[in-house]
């Protein structure tokens, strides 16, 4: 499974308006609920925040990858967002976050396909070319194109 098979067009948000980490995660949780990937936005939100409480998911470079293994997930997926402003995320390098990959994982998933695609996203975030391209992307189509490579 490729990254693009995991992240449907519906799960790309180009102008996320949020002031805080919590607000960003809440809004994206609601979007995942509307898109039918999760069955309880509040429950999923709590699970993601619990993970967030262990260590920050602000990995630096203006990117955050909050994630939750949650019983409220119907189907594992990722929602991508670019924010309208930099959000304080307690990042490893102190940078404010403008790019979010929120990962939703169904713990009952039998196969490894979804996890493999998530691992692929994680490792590509260490690739300077990928990061630069994703930061420069301004449209849903551009994001899809980068994630399809």
């Amino acid at each position: 499974m490729q990254i693009i098979d995991l992240i449907s067009q519906k799960n790309i948000v180009m102008n996320l308006d949020a002031k805080t980490e919590q607000e960003a995660i809440k809004k994206l949780s609601i979007k995942l609920f509307e898109n039918d990937y999760i069955n309880n936005a509040g429950g999923f939100y709590d699970d993601v925040l619990e993970r967030e409480s262990y260590t920050t998911t602000g990995i630096g470079n203006g990117i955050a990858i909050p994630h939750g293994k949650s019983d409220y997930v119907n189907e594992s997926t990722v929602i991508f967002a670019k924010t309208t402003e930099g959000i304080e995320w307690n990042s490893l390098d102190g940078s404010k976050v403008r790019i979010i990959f929120l990962m939703a994982v169904n713990p009952r998933d039998k196969g490894k396909e979804h996890l493999q695609a998530l691992a692929k996203i994680a490792s590509r975030l260490m690739d300077d070319h990928f990061v630069r391209a994703i930061k420069e992307a301004n449209t849903t189509e551009e994001v899809i194109q980068i994630l399809s490579k």
């Binding site: 993970r51 994982v105 691992a119 994680a122 490792s123 975030l125 260490m126 690739d127």
Partner: peptide, 14 residues
């Protein structure tokens, strides 16, 4: 890592 979803693979790549 704790969740085994992302940091394990980012650390590997880096």
């Amino acid at each position: 890592c704790i969740a085994g979803i992302a940091h394990t693979y980012m650390a590997q790549a880096n």
